[in-house]
Amino acid sequence: MKKTKPPRQKSKRTKSEGGAGAKVYIVGESPMVEEYAELCATKGYSVQVQWNQEPTRKPVFQSSHITCSSAIPTTSALALELTNTDLVRKRQNLDRLDRALPSTAAILSSSVTVTATEQSGWIKQKHRLVGFGVLPTLVLKPLVEVAPTVFSPAETLNVVQRFFHSVGKEMALVQDRVGMVLPRILCQIINEAAFALQEEVASPQDIDTAMKLGTNHPFGPIEWADRIGVGQVNAVLTALQNDLQEDRYRISPLLRHMAQTGEWWKRTTYFIRKD
């Protein structure tokens, strides 16, 4: 049997022109800020970063093209806003960016937990904002979900397309909805695993092994939660629950508690607590 449609596409890492010294300003949450900063610097951008909250362990950047500063460079043609959990802070960040950046500059803002359309209502120059999907550890993948708004003109989209091309990512245009595609599917799998865990259906290790061997998932759901960070997972699920207003998106109390402790949910830690 042969599938006729679609042609099985291998990820195309097309040759990109790189950033050629262009300035990118990145603001938001750790570790996404570091991950995008490294990616951009590797591709030749001059990167300036600022965190909402300084990471507890200050990252040592590989590249000398990354500087930490709260001053927004007025010559920057592009800024990335990477906040998923603290939406009050996200709004402040976007407002600052909108005021400081030249009107031709585009803002790429994570739209996993709040739609790009809603975010564009927070700023004056709505045309410049485009949403995209970002969660920790997914940054290095060669594909990115992009959600334009009704206000996004072709010019802004061109800037965005050139940027992602230059950092070696192909784009998948999706409708502007909370959770987008992969974060919604992934976080719901993690949520289901957390329900199973709190009901003591199996150990965290066995849940991971079962999903990897039984249905060929690249990581077990508890491993995914470790990689993405349970605070981020909780933020995505909370956004889905608020947006879709369905019981189906109810969050596992165990997962919520782990997120509220402010720690990353490490499988090993959970084991120590349990035993």
Binding site: P6, Q9, S11, G133, L138, K141, P142, L143, V144, E145, E170, A172, V174, V181, L182, I185, L186, N216, H217, P218, F219
Partner: peptide
């Protein structure tokens, strides 16, 4: 496509 390339499934 998204699940395969971005998710690694």
């Amino acid at each position: 496509r998204i699940v395969r390339i971005e998710g690694g499934f």
